[in-house]
Design a protein around this nucleic acid. Structure first.
Lengths: 187, 187
DNA sequence: ACCTGAACACCGTTCAAGT
DNA sequence: ACCTGAACACCGTTCAAGT
């Protein structure tokens, strides 16, 4: 019996609808208000706060889903592609993290304090670590680099504005990150 | 006669006091409200809005000062240190941008749309370019890297939370950025 | 046990009235 | 010209009252 199944039927349905509606609302407007979301979900404001104690908690839950997808993508890519190609693909997918880019960036920012976010954060760091370690046996990637530092660098792409210039800049930024992973001459 | 001197004496004094008070208030609390700032500056809310049409404009003005300091620091460092040392020092200073880190990050984010922010943004890109070009004649830094991409990577450090772990992470991130600037084996 | 929705304190922003 | 500060619409959050 999962945590979710402990809830009464109507409560479980509400929780799901809140997350679904919130996801859509925040996609079209990252500043959407909780009252708007509650109304769109057809529930009272108090119900929303019963499920998510504050705005940050709701955002964390929404973005956690997107992070889950990214985390699961890493081993899948390693199954299909060479390690270096997998790393490249994953970084691109990360940089274009759906329509919730800013939200993921905020999740990473806040990750130090909140319990739930720390877990999300560690999942991402581990995904990066798995990709990097697979690459260490391949030309072009050196050993001993820090996955957390790489994730921090990757997060800078989440703040890049959409558009043609942003797309080109994202590519240059990702290339520069990979360049940083080259093995040192001595090693 | 500068733009500032065109203002009536009281208006000029108010503008200065707003900026000074806002700087202090935002330093201790990045979410400080404009009404609070107006009150602390001893002026009406309308006066604040006469000088800065909205919250973003006030923040931009405050953070612009910090950016100016960073921009002027680049040539000064090149006068005192070797190019590579100057680049290192500047990156560290950038990563610890006073108490307005998050604010500078927001300025960089918003830089694409707003006129005034674009100017601020270009100043920073140029500062990075000057440092990088000076380093191109030095061991360890390759040619042809993109200053805007480097600035984007640097901006990821502005989101790191303070504390012991954050300090160590910042160092690793900066090291990784510099590693990305190594010349390619072929060149 | 869970939900509703009016209410609270506060926010960014405006504007009639003053000097 | 410039300033004041009450007022507006809205925000996140709470809580008495319902089922």
């Amino acid at each position: 019996m999962t945590e979710d199944e402990k809830l009464r039927a109507d409560a479980r349905a509400n929780r799901g609808r809140i997350l679904e509606v919130a996801r859509q609302a925040l996609t079209s407007d990252p500043g959407a208000s909780l009252n708007q979301i509650a109304k769109a979900a057809g529930i009272g404001a108090g119900t929303l706060y019963r499920h998510f104690p504050n705005r940050e908690a709701l955002l964390a839950a929404v973005y956690h889903q997107e992070v889950q997808a990214l985390v699961q993508l890493a081993p899948a890519l390693l199954d299909t592609y060479s390690p270096l190609e997998a790393l490249h693909h994953w970084c691109e997918r990360f940089a274009n993290a759906g329509s919730v880019k800013q939200g993921i960036a905020d999740t990473l920012n806040a990750a130090v304090s909140v319990e739930d976010l720390q877990h999300t954060y560690r999942l991402l760091v581990d995904a990066v670590r798995v990709l990097m370690e697979a690459c260490e046996q391949v030309d072009g990637i050196g050993k001993g680099h820090d996955p957390e530092a790489v994730l921090t660098l990757l997060s800078s792409t989440l703040r890049i504005r959409p558009g043609a210039h942003g797309k080109a800049l994202t590519k240059r930024v990702l290339d520069l990150i990979i360049l940083g992973l080259r093995p040192s001459p001595s090693t």
